[in-house]
Design a protein around this nucleic acid. Sequence first.
DNA 1: AAATAAATTGGGAGCGCTTCCAAAACCATC
DNA 2: GATGGTTTTGGAAGCGCTCCCAATTTATTT
Lengths: 343, 343
Amino acid sequence: MSNLTLEDIARQAGVSRSTVSRVLNDHPNVREEVRRRVLDVIRQTGYHPNAAARTLASQRSLMLGLVLPRSVSSIFSDPYFPRLTQGIAQACNHYNYTLALFLVSSAEDEAKIYPRISRRGLLDGILLQSGQIGDQLMDRLLASNIPLVVIGRPFNPDGVSYIDVDNVNAAYNAVSHLIRLGYQRIATIAGPDNSTVSIDRKEGYARALQERGRKIDPSLIVEGDFTEAGGYYAMQSLLPARPDAVFAASDAMAIGAMRAIHEAGLRIPEDIAVVGFDDLPFAATATPPLTTIRQPIAPLGFKAVEILLDLIENGAQPPRRVIMDTELVVRDSCGALKRRSPG
Amino acid sequence: MSNLTLEDIARQAGVSRSTVSRVLNDHPNVREEVRRRVLDVIRQTGYHPNAAARTLASQRSLMLGLVLPRSVSSIFSDPYFPRLTQGIAQACNHYNYTLALFLVSSAEDEAKIYPRISRRGLLDGILLQSGQIGDQLMDRLLASNIPLVVIGRPFNPDGVSYIDVDNVNAAYNAVSHLIRLGYQRIATIAGPDNSTVSIDRKEGYARALQERGRKIDPSLIVEGDFTEAGGYYAMQSLLPARPDAVFAASDAMAIGAMRAIHEAGLRIPEDIAVVGFDDLPFAATATPPLTTIRQPIAPLGFKAVEILLDLIENGAQPPRRVIMDTELVVRDSCGALKRRSPG
DNA sequence: AAATAAATTGGGAGCGCTTCCAAAACCATC
DNA sequence: GATGGTTTTGGAAGCGCTCCCAATTTATTT
């Protein structure tokens, strides 16, 4: 349709290009009558200013990039990412930014994507999902000097703005809850050691035990990979150690663990209590319904955008840090509703 | 970092702007020695051409938009979208396009997003997830004359290029499978009537029954909303009609149905067989493992991009149509592995 | 070696907008 | 009604690239 330009609108409205531009950008100094006249022409013609020309002239693209690095994009089946994306997209809509999505799924992708990301004139800022240890992408992006907010604490957070959930505290609360309920042999199915999420959740687990004077029993700590199958196998390897409760670092692993427990002929929570992490939709409808930690994933994404806009507006120094709280959702799998809860 | 321009590179390499541009765009007519010299300077300086300037001058942004309309974005918890997105993103990487994501989550969003989408100079083409009946977005986008590929058959497909899975045939195969296994009272949990997906799957169900001379029993057809909870309630309302098999139009609904069946004290597949649709990850680990239809979701997304690039390259006439095949994945929930299967 | 054809290069005119600056129009004041 | 100040408006110079065209260089032919 319309390949109209500013000039065309200006001519039709009987004003100059500059005036139309002012109307478009809500500049104050335009006479009300003229503004109305211009707006009428714009409405009638269905004119939309050309995005590229605007970006080139103003040096702002009103576009943010969301980069999901290779190490995590395989987990794109995890509902975490859709929710995060949704929060981010909502914020972008709200602040009138466009969202560009970069899914890095292979090494080849990474090589192709990086130049595209760091090209000037494309993105005003970047949101990067923090990845595994040793991921070079963050350093490269940081070096490219584009405003950057990392989602999830990076391994080396020096000078980096990031937002994260308080994983340590969340895990601490989950395990404390189990301790209060009287469980003695509390195990954990942790995530892989190469992510800060796993490290933090494991630390929260350890801290809760230690604060109550419990010893950390290495045979009660086993590593999963955040998947259902991983949780299943982890639980199987955990059974000989006879835990009476298990804290899984993700709901998917918790569900896998529950499957393993059931298959072993044990009951939840009578024989083994289970607590997960995430509060995914299926946590509530599992049998038994899963006690878990709810993360504010979409709000986290939304907030990440707000931080990024702040960086764009006001510069990246000092780095911003935001840690969001979680919530323990008590259902049946921890036994709280069956046991006498002391307190 | 570098706010270098073409001109800077040209000066440093001792050539003209045009020559650098030629090198950048792989034009043939550049002396090998000059090309090398220019590339060296580019490499040393870490120069990247400005995207906006390029778009403005060449009238191509190398950017595609993926629009997920309001009616479906609420289902973003459905793994369908992540997978689709992944396929699309992979294709974009492969063909060196950037992907812009438009999640329409409210009416307000829609009003804000539409002008952004149809702004010239931003997108070379659009992928639109087909939505509910009555969704205006498709017509508006069509009218804006930007190359458009719809994912999922739209209600009014006239003149529209689209790609879809063969839902009719898939459902037909699933139900035929149940018929072959000897089930007599085959029910279906359909999706809401306002989407072509639901309509097509229901039609496949009906066609399979009719071809074998079976009557369609309205009491065996009930409507869900593609969620687990919806499947659960749908199954509950189906139980009085005493079905011996049920075809659910999505895995999520199938899982909900299984929960309802178990709660009613019935066995799967002995009392009621279940077949789902999607082959989501949890289908394989459900109890019992779910027989279901596998859709090539990511390949669908990939192909959608290829069609769109074809439209961009060669014009939108005639409209392209691609229908992809599905695959019946037989597991335990249909009873095929227990029953004598009659040939 | 001259004439002609082909390959390579440089210059300039945009692409459609923003934004600075100066001119014009308006206003209130003395 | 002239003066000074404030709004409002128009013109022009870019933003950094592509691409056409003409000029230059190189290769080929007779």
